[in-house]
Design a protein around this nucleic acid. Sequence first.
DNA 1: CCCATTTGGTTAACGTGTGAACCAGAACGT
DNA 2: ACGTTCTGGTTCACACGTTAACCAAATGGG
Lengths: 166, 166
Amino acid sequence: MKMHDGLSEFIERQLRNRCGLSGADYQVLAHLSEAPEGQLRSFELGRLLRWEKSRLSQHLGRMQNRGLVSRERCLADQRGAVVAITPRGSDLIKDAAPQHVADVRDVLIDHLTATEMAMLVTIGDKVGERLAALEHKHAAGLPPRPKPAKSAPGSKPSTAMVTDTP
Amino acid sequence: MKMHDGLSEFIERQLRNRCGLSGADYQVLAHLSEAPEGQLRSFELGRLLRWEKSRLSQHLGRMQNRGLVSRERCLADQRGAVVAITPRGSDLIKDAAPQHVADVRDVLIDHLTATEMAMLVTIGDKVGERLAALEHKHAAGLPPRPKPAKSAPGSKPSTAMVTDTP
DNA sequence: CCCATTTGGTTAACGTGTGAACCAGAACGT
DNA sequence: ACGTTCTGGTTCACACGTTAACCAAATGGG
């Protein structure tokens, strides 16, 4: 945990100081610049980033204001939006990427042996599997489809912080 | 990075759902409960957590409102404050701690071999050293003590996001 | 002793993340 | 064709973190 905190603080500071990009900005631009035409459906981007949709919506709004991306309604699906990287955004990430990569090497990769790197990867994989398994179990534990009965909701939503799962 | 995100999301969710505590709350209570008399000077706590002082101040305010900690002025140093864990806070963390530990084992430790654990530790140490070295280098690169000349500040603070270090 | 500096802490403004409520368009079952 | 449900997105209220400004008490050098 401490390692991650230190690592990401350093990386993000470099990114912000040199290019005015947050880590979030960087990820968005990275995905967009790798996509065909430099554009993606909003929900695709959300899936790739594993972000809450509200977070994505708000962050894209801010990035749009800064001229890094553009948004317009999708023709095929009238409710959806396609997000595209702008020339400005493209320039920025083309500038940021190599430095970013260099930073990561400089602070992490270059100082690990091949064995350590490999081990790190397998650890990550193991944890990923375990988390997926737990998520699965959770999903299975809940009612398949609660089918919100049209009448008699019974209890108020209860904004209380400590709630027993009934 | 993905590993850390998944890990901390899972851990924090458990903590929040079961006890109504955020990770931050947990750390504060953990440190306080380990301290003699269950109390600490604010700045000690800040040093232990490596938190910005404003963050600490605000978080303690919220925790105080929830009745998890209490604050009063320090007798020895009239500007300082001592933070103490309340009975309620104490109960909460006594309840949370074992489950928290179990979660960490369940999702990480139990699935790693001794070799992997050891490797993970050495990796963390290496990164820590590297980061410390870089920080040191940075500090050295800056003027030892800028000695803010009483007159002629020269340039406006410049709220611009992209700034070249002059 | 006095003034400058440092230290401990709070506050305000802002950017950012989360969950819930909400809305419109699409998909589906009958 | 129709209501119902699902999906993609936005918006709101709130919690959280950071920076900068600020204040009062302590410290320290002449």
